[in-house]
Amino acid sequence: MRPPTGPPPGPGPGAGRPVPSPPHLLILGGTTEARRLAEALAARPGGGTRVTTSLAGRVARPVLPPGEVRIGGFGGPEGLADWLRAHRVTALVDATHPFAGTISFNAARAAASAHVPLLALRRPPWTSVDGDDWHGVGSLEEAADALTTLGARRVFLTTGRTDLSAFAGRGDGTWFLVRSVDAPEPPYPARMETLLDRGPFTLDGEREVLRRYAIDAVVTKDSGGEATAPKLTAAREAGLPVVVVRRPAVPEGVAEAATPAEALAWLDVHT
């Protein structure tokens, strides 16, 4: 059999062209919404989006989302902007806690510097209903003052383990039940009991907490969402005042989504 003659066949159509990289999404996470967004992207047929979730590292045993995970800070807005450029991030979603104000403003500055589209994924705030006795305040310090005005003596404090300093200097004998995922960090109130627990919480469970500890006032941040909302219903049923710390605003000009589904729709346009 004769060997073939002539030049070898050339490369097929498209040979030698660079393969385009998939879109790279960075999620600033730590919330249920962030994890659900990563799960929804991972469940899409064929994938198509590289997802990295960044966690601050403040919780000892976080629930990890699918995809790549990095833990720790970026070194301010400049460090975040450098990371976005170095890892060729095509979109940034700030799905941090509604009260993580510093990282949200850092994200806005970094996204503008790196020319990366930014979305803030924020669960809607809570709204009061008939029978609620809510006292809105602008800060934790104002919340502490409100407890004095209300004459509260046994307080269910659900603002997180790192935000207790505003209540630490009280010398009026007020007792606090502090609930958090990990043990609180000082400074914290002198008269305090810690309840280590992670949501979601049930209405029956919240009723029992208020009854067992003889709570006469509740303090919470307006985090929104369903996981920790039953305490509000339990407080309403018991006729207890609730001091609600208002959440900070999203940085001006940043697009917002209230649900992971809305965030997916935004990503379809911007990646």
Rank of each mutant, 00 (worst) to 15 (best):
T90D: 02
A261T: 14
A100Y: 11
G29H: 09
R170Q: 02
W266T: 00
H135Y: 12
P23D: 00
L177F: 03
G169Q: 06
R198P: 02
R44G: 09
T149C: 09
P230W: 06
G12P: 04
A38D: 13
F201A: 01
A143I: 06
A168Y: 02
S113L: 13
E237N: 00
P8I: 13
R207K: 08
L267R: 02
T102G: 04
I103S: 03
P62V: 10
G6I: 10
D182K: 14
A258K: 09
T271P: 02
P124Q: 03
A15V: 06
A146N: 00
A263H: 08
F176W: 12
G138V: 00
L80N: 12
L140D: 11
G173V: 15
G151H: 01
L267M: 13
L147P: 10
A258D: 14
R246V: 02
L140P: 07
A111G: 05
L210F: 14
D130C: 04
M192W: 05
V155P: 14
L150W: 07
G10K: 10
T194I: 11
V137S: 10
G169E: 07
R88A: 15
V137H: 09
P200K: 11
H115T: 05
R211C: 13
P187L: 09
A42D: 10
G14N: 08
A86T: 14
L177R: 07
V181K: 10
P23M: 03
A120K: 15
V129F: 04
T220E: 00
D216M: 11
G46Q: 01
R58A: 13
V116F: 03
E185D: 15
F201Q: 01
D222F: 01
R35F: 13
F99M: 00
P124L: 01
L203I: 05
A108Y: 02
T259G: 01
L195E: 08
T174P: 01
L37Y: 06
A110N: 10
